[in-house]
Design a protein around this nucleic acid. Structure first.
Length: 971
RNA sequence: ACCCUGGUGGCGGAACAGGUAGACGCGCAGGACUUAAAAUCCUGUCUGCAGAAAUGCGGGUACGGGUUCGAUUCCCGUCUGGGGUACCA
């Protein structure tokens, strides 16, 4: 019985192997890899370690589209490649499961975010599994699970219980600060908050509340007040992108700024280390630039301008250009500036108030982005400290309260924005840079010699900077100052679906929860509606509020700031990640994700890592050694163009029932030209009365990309797509309906998404993986186009035919390879090795295609060559490689195969055809042996008939050999 | 508005340190095999001019300048697509 079964299996096997049945092969290997746990990794090995990480996804309800796997495929290729190269590779995956969309979904549909998230994760996982990734799923994490966020809360408590010692430039336990206050009061080196000055005995005499208020100014996680987008009508706080032009995206209700109690992370204390750390990591220069611009370190000075009316009062400004002090023609303060009421004169009061109301409705982005300038005079003047010149004080939205001192000295001849402001409000401009300023536009030069500048006249601006600062310091009205554009990170949300804060409030004091009470689980709620006064939904729970627990929750980036550590030790219930685990795996060797995280997630996780390092909880202070940013795959949307008409009610109703669409090539003609040519079609469709209607416009509508072949609309399918299009008629060009197209972000609502699972079913995971890589460089954004996928599929079938013939069956042999065949495969090994290492996966795929073509031309079916080829291919197309690897007689997984080494000796040529150029223009070619000396080559070149003719007796000035590619004679 | 990044055939892209621009693939055109289709294979495919042809000469990497013997690559300016701008992830 057993034998019969076996025979049967064998015949099926042979039959199957005539052609490349990718579906069966991929299913078989995915099951076997899972059963054999081939991707499970252990925290110890004699091999070197390599940690390859993807930015984990937010499991959105719309599932995976072809853009998601791009980075995952790239990292999977790299992880498999490293494993083949003999590394112990950690390649995990998980979910960043807290987030606003799930909460909005809950509000709209009443489904608990945990439920919808769980479902979404299931979908993601099913889709991911089809692509054949080498993730170690036993290490999967989910930031929304209590076993995970217990440690997010725990790290938060460490931040809460820490302060930053600016002398040692590191975080320390708050207890050290307290004992310093007890011993020497605020005179200790640790006091850097100017408004706190107390002695040791004063400290001891303070109430607990007073002491805690002071400590709050030092904690790395602290509570304060901050402005949020408040929508009264919705009773909730809105994200910036939920606000459009001062109105809520949903409902269109007015949105204003409101101050609410907020948690913050004191990331500004790490500004210098975040900046310095960039030098130790392999991020792209662009990424480093974005981060350092965000941190925005600048050197300058703070100085006081006394009020004209009340010289004891001062307006303090921050400037990076103290040298321009005599060019100050006006001051601008932020609308939120605390001295605004003092500065506003009764005459200007009404105007200032109107302006403030206007600014309140504006988002910060709008305030700095808008081209038009707005502002308002306060009525007051301050005095230039050096020459007592009267300077008017203005308010403008482009000055932000949070940066510097919230007030600037405006120098219109040197600053573009100040210049435009002066022009708009007709403020006279002082020129301090002579001929560098023409009155047409500002000139921010630092090279001019100063004029109209009192004691600075004739001095260069660069030298003047330090002179002014010295003088300011000596007369005590200012000082040198380093400033950062970066602000402390807002760390709370008035939302439900996030980590609860392990904080209890008593008498206005925030007390940390005991560690043993973690996790503080997110309670179930009946309603996701906001709580009273803009608080989060947790404020609606009597059970929660009666315990005085914090009602804010943590933001999306909390869990993602440290997740890379949890993968190292995912099931540890004693600690967030054991020291042995983090010591073994260390930094992430390769991190892949989009640039959109440049200044958010990446900075936060770098800060958390530095913090954990300071507390000696991990042994490294940069999380990611190397970062690669994958580009975004955009959707290529298709449009149909509907004719919009004006006419009788009957006609307008018909226009809805029987819409008429016009082909893209015709839509740009003038409406008047169209009237006559389209009328016939309208009459045909709607009856005689249609001759009366007027065509008023043509509107473009998204159409599902699956209904369009290239640009041509599949009309029957389109009619079936939506019931209201079933009676549609079409104005064609050349008997075809041609759609319009546009490249946009991939999204369900634009009908331009492509589902990877469908492609995997049609062409196989291997084809899909290789095609995504073949599409272009991983780093580059590009629109998705399914058309080319056939070419990659053809390549895999060609590869298959090197092993099996449709009629003859097995064709691979154990014969010894020829020199030509060896040359082909060694060329491939060299190229693949280089390309995979430098992340040039698109050219690597091309090289594989060329190799298979060349082997096909040579009719090479030799195992010796083919098995090397399979290993090269394995990271890219794991299923087919594994199948064929076993077919040629290997028992173990291809991932444990030794990666082939190329041998120069198979590639060496004895002579080469060199182009010979004169002044860069190629004139002829010469065969030159590779071991010829430079002099021999020169003699040969100069002796050549054609070259001599061209040189026409002239001796070349020099002869340049260009990287083994050409020889150029410069005359 | 500011910061970052891209722009090369009909299309995706290649050219890795400034050195023969258009590899590889798609599409298209023609051909072979087939009763036919599918599949497969072969040939051509930036462009203008000349030529029966092999081929030759010129132009060409968004646009305008510059540096260089030589520029898709470096520099300056302009136009334009994409990402980010602090509560989307």
């Amino acid at each position: 019985m057993a034998k019969i079964k076996d025979l049967h299996a064998r015949s099926v096997f042979l039959l199957v192997h005539m052609e490349y049945s990718f579906n069966a092969i991929e299913k078989k290997w995915q099951e076997r890899w899972k059963a054999d746990q081939v991707y499970k990794v252990y925290n110890n090995s004699t091999k070197p370690k390599c940690y390859v990480l993807d930015m984990f996804p937010y499991p959105s309800g719309t599932g995976l589209h072809v853009g998601h796997p791009l980075g995952y495929i790239a990292s999977d290729i790299f992880a498999r490649y490293k494993r083949l190269k003999g590394y112990n590779v950690l390649h995990p995956m998980g979910y960043d499961a807290f987030g606003l969309p799930a909460e909005q979904f809950a509000i709209d549909h009443g489904i608990h975010p945990a439920t919808s998230t769980k479902q979404n994760i299931k979908n993601f996982r099913e889709q991911l599994d089809r692509i054949g990734f080498s993730f170690d799923w036993s290490r999967q994490i989910n930031t929304a699970e209590p076993s995970y966020y217990k440690w997010t809360q725990w790290i938060f408590l460490q931040l809460f219980n820490s302060w930053f010692d600016r002398v040692e430039n590191k975080a320390k336990h708050i207890g050290e600060l307290i004992s310093s206050f007890e011993k020497q009061g605020s005179s200790g080196i640790h006091s850097y908050h100017a408004n706190n000055s107390f002695s040791s005995s004063e400290w001891k005499s303070y109430s607990e509340k007073q002491q805690q208020d002071i400590l709050m100014e030092y904690r790395l996680a602290y509570c304060g007040f901050g402005e949020v987008n408040w929508c009264e009508a919705l009773g909730t706080v809105l994200a910036n992108d939920e606000v459009i032009n001062g109105f809520s995206e949903r409902g269109g209700f007015p949105v204003v700024k409101k101050k609410l109690r907020q948690w913050y992370l004191r990331i500004t204390e790490y500004a210098d280390r975040l900046l310095a750390g960039l030098e130790k990591v392999e991020f792209s220069e662009a990424m480093k630039e974005m981060q350092s611009n965000w941190i925005g370190k600048s050197y300058g000075a703070e100085l006081d301008f006394a009020f004209e009316r009340e010289p004891s009062k001062k307006l303090r400004v921050y400037t990076t250009r103290p040298d321009t002090i005599f060019g100050v023609d006006f001051m601008v303060i932020a609308p939120e500036h605390e001295l605004l009421t003092d500065l506003t004169t009764p005459a200007q009061k009404r105007e200032v108030e109107t302006y403030i109301t206007y600014v309140k409705s504006r988002s910060e982005r709008e305030r700095i982005a808008e081209k038009k300038i707005s502002g308002c005079f306060t009525g007051s003047y301050v005095l230039n400290p050096f020459n007592s010149r009267k300077i008017p004080v203005w308010i403008s939205e482009y000055v932000l309260a949070g940066y510097g001192t919230g007030a600037i000295m405006a120098v219109p001849c040197g600053d573009e924005r100040d210049f435009k402001f002066a022009q708009q409000y007709k403020i006279p401009i002082t020129n301090i840079i002579g001929s560098h300023f023409h009155g047409e536009e500002a000139n921010p030069t630092k090279d001019a010699l100063l004029e109209n500048s009192d004691f600075l006249d004739g001095i260069s601006m660069r030298d003047a900077m330090s002179l002014v600062i010295e003088k300011l310091e000596s007369i005590g009205i200012g000082n040198k100052r380093v400033n950062y554009k970066m602000r402390d990170a807002a760390f709370s949300r008035q939302r439900y679906w996030g980590e609860p804060f392990p904080i209890i409030w008593k008498n206005g004091i925030a007390y940390p929860l005991d560690e043993k009470d973690l996790p503080l689980e997110l309670p179930k709620v009946d309603s996701y509606k906001p709580g009273p006064d803009g608080e989060g939904p947790l404020a609606n729970l009597p059970d929660w509020t009666s315990k005085h627990l914090e009602t804010n929750t943590m933001p999306g980036y909390a869990g993602s700031s440290w997740y890379f550590l949890r993968y190292m030790d995912p099931n540890n219930s004693e600690t967030f990640c054991s020291r042995t685990a983090s010591a073994y795996w260390g930094q992430v060797d390769l991190y892949i994700g989009g640039t959109e995280h440049a200044v958010g997630h990446l900075l936060y996780s770098r800060m958390w890592t530095k913090f954990l390092f300071d507390l000696d909880l991990i042994g490294f202070d940069e999380p990611y050694r190397k970062l690669v940013n994958q580009g975004m795959i955009q959707g290529s949307s298709r449009f149909v163009y509907r004719i919009e008409i004006k006419g009788s009610d009957k006609m307008e109703a018909l226009a809805k029932q029987k819409p008429v669409f016009i082909s893209a090539g015709l839509k740009n003609k003038k409406l008047s030209e169209l009237q006559s040519s389209i009328k016939n079609i309208l009459i045909e469709s709607w009856g005689e009365e249609a001759s009366e209607v007027e065509i008023i416009s043509i509107s473009g509508l998204h159409v599902d990309v699956s209904l369009v072949d290239g640009m041509e609309l599949d009309i029957p399918a389109f009619k079936k797509w939506r019931s209201d299009y079933s009676n549609a008629s079409f104005v064609l060009e050349n008997d075809k309906y041609i759609c319009g197209s546009e490249v946009e972000k991939m999204s369900k609502s634009k009908f331009n998404t492509v589902n990877p699972t469908e492609l995997v079913e049609r062409y196989g995971a291997d084809t899909f993986r290789m095609y995504e890589m073949f599409l272009g460089p991983v780093e580059q954004s590009k629109p998705w186009d399914t058309k080319g996928i056939e070419g990659v599929h053809r390549f895999l079938r060609k590869l298959w035919r090197l092993f099996f013939d449709e009629i003859k069956g097995r064709v691979w042999t154990s014969e010894t390879a020829t020199a030509d065949e060896r040359k082909v495969i060694h060329k491939a090994i060299k190229k693949l090795d280089e390309d995979t290492d430098r992340f040039s996966f698109n050219t690597a795929v091309s090289a594989l295609m060329i190799t298979v073509n060349e082997l096909g031309e040579l009719k090479c079916h030799k195992k010796e060559v083919l098995e090397k080829l399979l290993i090269l291919l394995a990271p890219y197309a794991p299923h087919i490689s594994e199948e064929l690897w076993h077919e040629i007689g290997n028992e173990y997984t291809i991932l444990d195969a030794p990666y082939p080494k190329y041998d120069e000796k198979f590639l060496i040529e004895s002579e080469k055809l060199y182009p010979i150029a004169i002044n860069g223009k190629t004139r002829t070619e010469l065969n030159i042996s590779l071991d010829a000396s430079q002099q021999q080559v020169e003699e040969m070149v100069l002796a050549d008939e054609t070259v001599r003719k061209w040189l026409n007796g002239v001796t070349p000035k020099k002869i340049i050999y260009v990287r083994n590619k050409m020889i150029n004679l410069v005359v």
